[in-house]
C-alpha cells in the first residue's frame, strides 16, 4: 500500500516536472495525472496558467470549521504546489480581526494577488482600500463581502440560490408536481440557509401541487436533523410528508436515520434530497437512501489560481465567477463516489 502511494506520487511528480518543462497550454493534463482525479471545475480560461510559476498568492482562510472547509483549503494548497505558486496561507480561526491582520501582512510582504473567504459580510472596506492603494488585486472566494465593486477584482464561489433552484427543479421532475415537502433549514440567518430556501421556493413555485408543509431548522448538523425529523414524523402533518429537502447533506443523513426508525424506507417511501454532495451523502445515494444531492463545490483552488494569473497579467475579470455545481442522483452515485474528495 505504502509503496503504491509512493509510486503514484513519484509518477505524478514526474508528470508535473515534464509539464512545467514544456510550459505550453498543451501541458494542461500532465501524463502522470492520476486517472481518479476529479475534473477541476472549469471556467473560461483554465488553460492559460503559464504565469502561475513563481506567482505570490496570499490566501486568508476562514478556519477549519467543517469538512467542506478542509477540502477547500486542501484544494488551494495542493493546486498551488502543483502549479508552483508561492502560497502564503493564513488560518483565521473564524475571527475577522485575524483575517484583517493576515491581509495587512500580505500587503506588507508585497504579494502579487490576495484571496480570501470573508468570515462575515461586513467591515472589509478599510483593509481592502489599503490593498487597492498598494495596487494588489483582491479575489473574494466562497462567501460574499459587502464592499463597493471597485475594492475587489472578482468573487469566485457557488451560487446558493441556484443550488436551491436546482434541487427544486429536480423535485418537480421527480414528483411530477405534487408532493408534501418537509424542509430542514440551515442555521437561521446564514447566507446558504437563506439563499437555498429562496431558490428552492422559486423553483417549486412553478408547480402548484408542491407544498412545503413543515419547515424547521436542523442547524446544519446530523444530530439536530435527526431530532427534528423524529418529531416531524410524529406531528399531525407527519404522515402526509413524502419529500424531505435538507439544506445540507449532514441534516439529510440524520433525517434518513429518523425515517428508518419509524419503519419507512428513506429514498422510496419518502424522497430525500439535499445540497453539498459530500462523500457520506454519495454513500447514502449508493445505498438508495438519499435520492439526490446538489453539489456545492469546495475545490476552488484551480479557479482561484487561474484568476490570480490573469489578474497579475493585468487583465480585468468579471465581478462574479460562478462555480458550476453539478447535480447527482442515485443513477450516477456509484460511478461518482470514488471521485469524491470531501
Amino acid at each position: 500500500m505504502k509503496i503504491d502511494r509512493f509510486a503514484v506520487s513519484l509518477f505524478a511528480t514526474c508528470g508535473i516536472l515534464l509539464s512545467s518543462g514544456c510550459g505550453g497550454p498543451a501541458a494542461d493534463k500532465p501524463a502522470g495525472d492520476k486517472p481518479t482525479d476529479t475534473p477541476a471545475p472549469t471556467t473560461a480560461g483554465t488553460t492559460a496558467n503559464a504565469g502561475a510559476k513563481g506567482l505570490k498568492l496570499g490566501f486568508a482562510q476562514v478556519g477549519a470549521e467543517s469538512g467542506w472547509r478542509t477540502a477547500n483549503t486542501e484544494s488551494i494548497k495542493s493546486e498551488c504546489e502543483k502549479q508552483g505558486v508561492d502560497l502564503k496561507f493564513s488560518d483565521a480561526q473564524q475571527k475577522q480581526e485575524n483575517q484583517i491582520k493576515a491581509i495587512r501582512s500580505f500587503i506588507a510582504q508585497g504579494v502579487d494577488v490576495i484571496a480570501f473567504s470573508p468570515v462575515v459580510e461586513t467591515g472589509w472596506a478599510p483593509v481592502l482600500q489599503e490593498a487597492k492603494r498598494a495596487h494588489i488585486p483582491v479575489i473574494v472566494s466562497d462567501r460574499r463581502a459587502d464592499v463597493p465593486d471597485d475594492l475587489y477584482a472578482t468573487f469566485i464561489g457557488s451560487d446558493f440560490i441556484k443550488e436551491g433552484e436546482m434541487a427544486g427543479e429536480w423535485l418537480v421532475k421527480k414528483t411530477g408536481g405534487t408532493a408534501n415537502i418537509a424542509e430542514l433549514t440551515g442555521t437561521p440567518g446564514s447566507a446558504p440557509a437563506n439563499d437555498r430556501a429562496k431558490g428552492f421556493r422559486t423553483a417549486i413555485g412553478k408547480a402548484a401541487g408542491l407544498k412545503i408543509v413543515f419547515s424547521q431548522t436542523g442547524e446544519f448538523t446530523r444530530t439536530k436533523g435527526k431530532e427534528v425529523m423524529e418529531a416531524l414524523l410524529k406531528s399531525p402533518v407527519g404522515n402526509t410528508v413524502n419529500v424531505v429537502f435538507a439544506h445540507n447533506d449532514d441534516m439529510a443523513l440524520g433525517a434518513i436515520q429518523a425515517i428508518e426508525a419509524t419503519g419507512k424506507k428513506p429514498g422510496k417511501d419518502i424522497v430525500v434530497l439535499s445540497i453539498d454532495g459530500i462523500k457520506d451523502g454519495f454513500k447514502a445515494m449508493v445505498d438508495g437512501k438519499l435520492n439526490c444531492s446538489v453539489e456545492c463545490n469546495p475545490l476552488l483552488g484551480p479557479n482561484i489560481i487561474d484568476a490570480a494569473v490573469q489578474l497579475k497579467a493585468g487583465k480585468t475579470l468579471p465581478k462574479r465567477t460562478v462555480v458550476q455545481d453539478g447535480i447527482f442522483d442515485q443513477s450516477v452515485a456509484a460511478k461518482e463516489l470514488p471521485n469524491r474528495k470531501y
Binding site: 470549521e65 467543517s66 446530523r222 444530530t223 435527526k226 449532514d250 440524520g254
Partner: peptide
Amino acid sequence: VITGDIQAADANNS
C-alpha cells in the same frame, strides 16, 4: 450516546 446515535463523531457540533 450522541456519537452512537448518528454513527458519526462530529467534533465541530457534538
